[in-house]
Design a protein around this nucleic acid. Sequence first.
DNA 1: CTACGGATTTTCT
DNA 2: GAAAATCCGTAGT
Length: 209
Amino acid sequence: MEKVNREFYNRNSLLVAKELLGKYLVHVVGGEELICKLVEVEAYMGPEDKAAHSYGGRRTERVEVMYGPAGYAYVYIIYGMYYCLNVVVEREGLPQAVLIRGAEPIKGLEEMSKLRFKKEYKELKKREVINLTSGPGKLCSALNIDKTCNGADLCGENLYILEGEKEPFEIGASARVNIDYAEEYREKPWRFFIKDNPFVSKGLNKKIK
DNA sequence: CTACGGATTTTCT
DNA sequence: GAAAATCCGTAGT
């Protein structure tokens, strides 16, 4: 399977977000490949987007990596306890990113289970299986993604994205999650997901029209 | 299955 | 000092 190249990332966040669905996220941990299929993402559009960390061109230590070239990881701590993984997109100087919100475990299930619940995969309850990677903080825990991954080169050997299978699927769109502060950008349909996939974090019921 | 509140600490004002 | 791109347990329907 082919690795996604830098040109893919060097485009508009909305475009990249949609095309990331169905691709495989890989993190090599202790020599083993942990692999998940991306099923839910959100586009953050940079300076114009009131929901983005880089809104208004804000440039702090935390968001610095978004100002660099495309194809690098932006990892930050949320609510003091969880990590969120983003893919930096667009050209250098234009700070856009795609938040990875949900994924389906493909390979390395035992290791993911231990990282997240400290249990064997077969010991997991149904609810726990779904909770392995069905949220931004959850998938970082299962894939052992933390602050040390901030700035990682996605065109490198440790953390990267593969093209994935060419199976067709339907894409859903909705408003982004937990950005009530973003005023007129709150309702923008910039969250994308694979319809009917159980590892999508929310919106399986009423929110989808 | 939905709703709510608490946990916990980095980041920025 | 307040907010934050979240998660989990508990209680209720």
